[in-house]
């Protein structure tokens, strides 16, 4: 594949991820407002927020690591995005950098962003940030286990370590993996709210408790970059999940439909739940999700 085409498709994918992620978050705010019997902001409100943050005239930082932390995060998100095939119709336009063995690499890549956030937040010296980072890493230990179990189960069962390979399996067999490997699917699905950090798993950035946790010292363009990153990363997670379990999508319309349906799961769950404490969250993830993960592994082995 020649480099120019790669650059073109890469940028198109990134912009797509940004726009879709932002609109989803705007929709989330709108839905939250409607559930609370409010009118709510327009769904493009998040674009305005990011624009405003980028047009701030000053952004203070406390050192090099805080300066690069948002860049680190957004770079990780875009890299992750590059390894995920967006569509399953065999066209090479949205496959970007997909290669043999990428699923294992994705497992590692997806946590690198949090690491950057931890380093940057650590440098600000704000005690809330430190608490937030500890909580975030603890929670990650929680939800990564069922998530990894589910993916390993699929990898063993279908003897492939690529997302594209799993997509092929689904296209050829005609059923989605969420139907043929229901236990792994349930384990991964229950891990999703933890990844999105919405209620009841918003223990990292709890605004009332921790003053938004790790990002409490980030303002102006840093916060803007982080919001951009949040949008892209949300799209990454949703697309990866849809690719693996829900058969991918043959065109953008189906992709939006499936990712939106999936996105509603953490959002609607979050609307009706108060916040867990850290140990409650970890206990939750190590309970039923791990149980289903084990079942999934057993199903894969036999």
């Amino acid at each position: 594949m020649d480099i120019w085409k790669l650059l073109l498709t890469g940028s198109v994918t990134t912009v797509l991820a940004f726009v879709v992620g932002m609109l989803y978050m705007g929709l989330r705010r709108k839905i939250t407002a409607r559930v609370q019997n409010r009118v709510g902001p327009p769904i493009y409100q998040n674009f305005l927020d990011v624009m405003k943050l980028w047009s701030k005239k000053s952004s203070i930082n406390h050192g090099f690591m805080q300066h690069v932390a948002p860049l680190w995060m957004i770079a990780t998100s875009i890299t992750t995005l590059m390894f995920i095939p967006i569509l399953n119709n065999g066209s090479t336009f949205f496959t970007n950098l997909t290669f043999e063995g990428d699923l294992i690499m994705l497992l590692y890549l997806m946590v690198v962003g949090s690491l950057g956030m931890a380093l940057g937040a650590g440098q600000t010296g704000n005690p809330n940030s430190a608490i937030g980072v500890t909580r975030g890493l603890t929670q990650m230990v929680g939800f990564e286990i069922p998530w990894v179990m589910a993916l390993v189960a699929l990898m063993i069962q279908h003897r492939t370590t690529t997302v594209a390979g799993l997509l092929d399996v689904q296209v050829q067999s005609g059923t989605w993996l969420m139907l043929s490997s229901p236990f792994a699917f349930i384990a991964a699905l229950l891990a999703i709210p933890g990844m999105f950090r919405y209620s009841p798993f918003d223990i990292v950035g709890a605004p009332a408790e921790l003053a938004s946790g790790p990002i409490s010292e980030f303002g102006g363009k840093y916060l803007g970059t982080m919001m951009t990153n949040g949008a892209i990363f949300a799209f990454v997670k949703l697309t990866l999940f849809v690719d693996i379990f829900m058969g991918g999508a043959s065109n953008l319309g189906f992709l939006l439909l499936k990712t939106f349906a999936l996105y509603m799961f953490p959002v609607l769950w979050g609307l009706v739940s108060p916040r867990f404490r850290t140990e409650q969250a970890v206990r939750f993830f190590w309970g039923w999700p791990v149980f289903f993960g084990v079942l999934g592994l057993i199903q894969a082995a036999i």
Partner: peptide
């Protein structure tokens, strides 16, 4: 909150002065 809902004008709480 729901009675007057300032969020529809884009007004929203921030947690820290930096933001």
């Amino acid at each position: 909150t729901s009675r007057y809902d300032a969020e529809r004008f884009g007004i929203r709480g921030a947690a820290t002065p930096r933001q």
